[in-house]
Design a protein around this nucleic acid. Structure first.
Length: 856
RNA sequence: GCCCCAGUGGCGGAAUUGGUAGACGCGCUUGACUCAAAAUCAAGUGCCGGAAACGGCGUGCUGGUUCGAGUCCGGCCUGGGGCACCA
């Protein structure tokens, strides 16, 4: 026999089916009210130039869901696009003198080819790239709509400045005080920026989390922490000799009698005013603003304060005079930018009080402490207890004292209960070229004027240079010089561009209707397709993209674009792809492709034979070189092998270790199934079922139908690894099917079932085998198999028999056999009697169809 | 510091509600086929003892609840993740 006939020709087969799917438009989605819609979406990639294993896993997961739901009769939308604005394009422009647009488009073309080789069931007609004016023009319109709706404002504020990227970063993009991409410590700068009022939805974004039942608990928790709601009070302290009072925020109004100082943020207006005629204070404030916000900086920085000489009066005890400090640990962005300090019940306040020798008066007595000798040492007391040293609060517990203070001060007009959030408004201005221009003109007379709708889009100029650091739009000779749309006098175009998270905050809606030119998408299309039923991507976007999109959707709803609040009804967060790491004798990292394992288990460099140290399994990363290029795998083993491996070894949300052995296993299975189908002598398609089956054949048919039920359940729950295991079990059972009445018919039934069940995972192989089995139809049009209920019924149950909880025998009993029968059978079993002989049986527990436990 | 998640064979992982721990795969061992190798097929594979039958032990550690615990409860250990001058 020729080699081509006894071995599966992956390359030819996969290319052929991909062409057929494309030619027939198998995955084109159309709105259809007759069928239930299902929108499955994977987080779209940044076009870096090549796909990596994380992409392969992400898109495989999405494709399994899409193909499975399609077979279940849903009208499936499964699109793909490119998150195409961003800094790497500008870096490439600087390094290689290539225009960001060209670099990006070439990368997209290369990656599209790679994705198409994976056999993914996308509606490619809907492909979008966010860097094209056809896309970003619509978000300029949205921005202006948000502005009109009061959801956008411009403010001068202290922002995170990345000195390497020469741009502002949002809070969400600062990790451990460092820029999320550059990794260098961010600085504080005072700049005018555009903000989106995400805080207006803080409560709603928080409350709605509990209804996102198909989101991982972990992600909901992370968003909850990020929003950081805390209930407290705003209190006004009179300032001696001043008209205006000092407003502070506190969550512990119950400790007001323990106050011993007030502290202002260095950027608080009162501090700034005081600094105007106090050079020493001005120096102190400048020093505070130089301090980094990185973890180390905060850990090591001392609590420092500067006594302004001003005095605040305690609102519950106006005769108590509290010094007002400017303190380096008070944030202007949270609460009111001012606090009162109660050293006995807060760690920072205590540190500060010890340093500046301020009184430490306990006002909450722990439940088991004695009032006579209770004192605060190095640690404050932060728990519940009984109020002391607090006049009219004495004897109350903490919640009651909070209530009492709140009611009294509210009645006196000296305070109000409020809620504070950690969440800040979303600063969207970036001082970069490769982003969507913000459609605003700054006029010396009219201020910030929106670009009229008729003049949209504001497109990026092509003729820019990247020879100097900074924003090329700002340096461009002509682009920014325009006349004011309102009064016609010479004005300056806004040269900042949007944060790239702006584009990804609405792309899922554009996929519903990527063709409209006058509007981002038709309302009817969005109403039909949204929300996304299943969203799949990495956990790294738990707060960034996923929170922005939830806010953006609410903003779009307010402006009439959509009718939903939540963009993603279901979310699956996939784990990372990991690989062993390798180092040579010098300690330099080596690619997996550079090393090889000898028969004796030693690892060496393939080229030189030099010894190699194998390190721990870590997330694939370029810096550690523990990466495997998907293109090579797909070229050698085919897309189906890569897809099957991605699904078999680990549950999707867990990290997956890429191993050659695992790939081999998937490859072997694909070939084994191919040989089984090609080599099987089967009755023809549609042959009538025999009148009866031999018992062992019926047993195999039962496995077939139970597998249908189990795999269906597994896919519904995204237990893909279990689904693969069950399909393999069925394959094993079919391989052992001997001759017997009806065996041929049952084998066809079983093989057809395997092929249909495996279709979402390895679609090329499945289509090929479906045709080899004699079908003229295609699996993409074939409904999901259904289990025959008659074959799911069990006639016997295997019952475990325990003596004192230890397994001693198993019995095959009729299903639902009476308790007495099970008990009698168990006690009669010789293996059981060995352990009961000569002993008194005290108790017998019978769980029908499961277990009999004899207690002696 | 606060919050969350996870610890099961040599490895990845199974075990819907407490009811036969280790499905499926990888690896390994042995055998068949072959001049040989690869591929394929067959058998075995938690650990300890035993030729076997069989017995003992076993889900990070420890204590508890229960006829029965990987699963529930308390205390610890280890690993991972998130947040962190948030008043």
């Amino acid at each position: 026999m020729s080699r081509s006939r006894d071995r599966y020709n992956v390359k030819e087969t996969e290319a052929r089916w991909q062409a057929i799917w494309e030619d027939r438009g198998c995955f084109h989605a159309r709105e259809d009210d007759a069928r239930a819609k299902y929108y499955v979406l994977e987080m779209f990639p940044y076009p870096s130039g090549r796909i990596h294993m994380g992409h392969v896993r992400n898109y495989t997961l999405g494709d399994v869901v899409a193909r499975y739901k399609r077979a279940r009769g849903f009208n499936v939308l499964h699109p793909m696009g490119w998150d195409a604005f961003g800094l790497p394009a500008e870096n490439a422009a600087i390094a290689n003198k290539v225009h960001p647009a060209r670099w990006t488009r070439e990368n997209i073309a290369a990656m599209r080819t790679q994705l198409k080789a994976m056999g993914l069931s996308y509606d490619w007609r809907r492909e979008i790239a966010t860097c094209e004016p056809e896309y970003y023009r619509h978000e300029q319109k949205m921005f202006l709509d948000f502005l009109a709706a009061g959801l956008v404002y411009r403010k001068e504020s202290w922002v995170n400045w990345d000195p390497v990227e020469h741009t502002v970063l949002a809070n969400e993009q600062v990790i451990d005080g460092r820029g999320w991409r550059s990794g260098v410590p961010v600085e504080k700068r005072l700049l005018s920026q555009w903000f989106l009022k995400i805080t207006e939805y803080a409560d709603d974004l928080l409350a709605a989390l509990k209804d996102l039942e198909r989101w991982p608990e972990r992600v909901r928790l992370m968003q909850e922490n990020w929003i950081g709601r805390s209930e407290g009070m705003r209190l006004t302290f009179d300032v001696e000799g001043a008209e205006e009072g000092l407003e502070v925020f506190t969550t512990r109004p119950d400790t007001l009698f323990g106050a011993s100082f007030c502290a202002l943020s260095p950027n608080h207006p009162l501090a700034q005013r005081a600094a105007a005629d106090n050079p020493a204070l001005a120096d102190f404030i400048a020093e505070c603003n130089r301090m980094g916000t990185s973890e180390e900086a905060i850990e090591t920085a001392e609590k420092k304060g500067f006594d302004t000489g001003m005095v605040a009066l305690n609102p519950v005890r106006p005769d108590q005079r509290l010094p007002i400090y400017v303190a380096n640990f008070v944030l202007m962005e949270y609460g009111t930018g001012a606090i009162f300090g109660c050293p006995a019940h807060d760690q920072r306040d205590l540190d500060f009080a010890r340093k500046y020798d301020l009184p430490v008066v306990p006002v909450v007595l722990p439940p088991d402490a004695d009032a006579a000798d209770f004192a605060i040492g190095a640690e404050p007391y932060v728990g519940d207890g009984t109020l002391i040293n607090s006049e009219w609060l004495d004897g109350l517990d903490v919640p009651a004292a909070k209530r009492a203070v709140a009611e009294r001060l509210e009645a006196e007009g000296r305070g109000a209960r409020t809620v504070s959030y950690r969440l800040r408004d979303w600063g969207v201005s970036r001082q970069r070229y490769w982003g969507c221009p913000i459609p605003i003109v700054h006029c010396p007379d009219c201020g910030a004027v929106p670009v009229p709708e008729a003049e949209l889009p504001v497109t990026l100029p092509e003729d820019v240079d990247f020879d100097q650091p900074g924003n090329p739009l700002d340096r461009h000779p002509t682009w920014k010089h325009v006349d004011c749309p309102s009064c016609g006098t010479p004005a300056r175009r806004e040269t900042d561009t949007f944060d790239t998270f702006f584009e990804s905050s609405w792309y899922f809606a554009r996929f519903a209707d990527p063709w409209s030119t006058d509007i981002g998408f038709k309302r009817a299309a969005a109403d039909y397709w949204l929300p996304v039923d299943q969203y799949i991507g990495g956990i790294e976007h738990a707060v960034l993209h996923l929170l922005y999109s939830r806010f953006f959707t609410r903003a779009l709803r307010r402006c009439g674009y959509v009718g939903v609040d939540e963009p993603f009804a279901g979310l699956l967060t996939q784990g990372m792809i990991c690989h062993e790491t390798y180092r040579d004798e010098k300690g330099d990292w080596l690619f997996p492709s550079e090393v090889t394992r000898l028969d004796d288990g030693r690892w060496v460099r393939a080229a030189t034979g030099a010894p190699v140290t194998v390190g721990r399994v870590e997330k694939m990363s370029k810096s550690k070189k523990n990466v495997v290029d998907p293109e090579g795998i797909i070229a050698t083993y085919g897309a189906d092998t890569a897809r099957l491996f991605m699904l078999s070894d680990s549950p999707p949300e867990r990290d997956l270790e890429w191993t050659d052995a695992g790939v081999d296993g998937a490859w072997r299975y694909i070939n084994r199934l191919w040989r089984m189908v090609i080599g099987a002598g089967l009755p023809p398609v549609g042959a009538p079922a025999p009148a009866s089956f031999a018992p062992e054949v019926t047993a195999v048919r039962q496995v077939t139908h139970r597998t249908i039920a189990a795999v269906t359940d597994d896919l519904e729950r995204f237990h893909f690894n279990k689904a693969v295991a069950r399909i393999r079990e069925l394959t094993n059972a079919l391989g052992e099917l001997a001759e017997g009445e009806g065996a041929g018919w049952a084998l066809r039934e079983g093989l057809e079932t395997v092929v249909r069940l495996v279709n979402p995972m390895t679609p090329h192989l499945a289509e090929e085998l479906w045709r080899a089995l004699g079908h003229a139809t295609m699996l993409v049009d074939t409904p999901w198999p259904e289990a025959d209920p008659a074959l799911l019924v069990e006639e016997t149950a295997t019952v475990a028999v325990q003596v004192n909880g230890k397994l001693r025998a198993t019995l095959a009993l009729a299903k639902d056999a009476p308790r007495e029968e099970a008990e009698a059978a168990a006690l009669a079993d010789p293996a059981v009697q060995k352990f009961t002989a000569g002993k008194t049986i005290r108790k017998v527990i019978v769980v029908p169809n499961k277990i009999v436990n004899v207690v002696v």
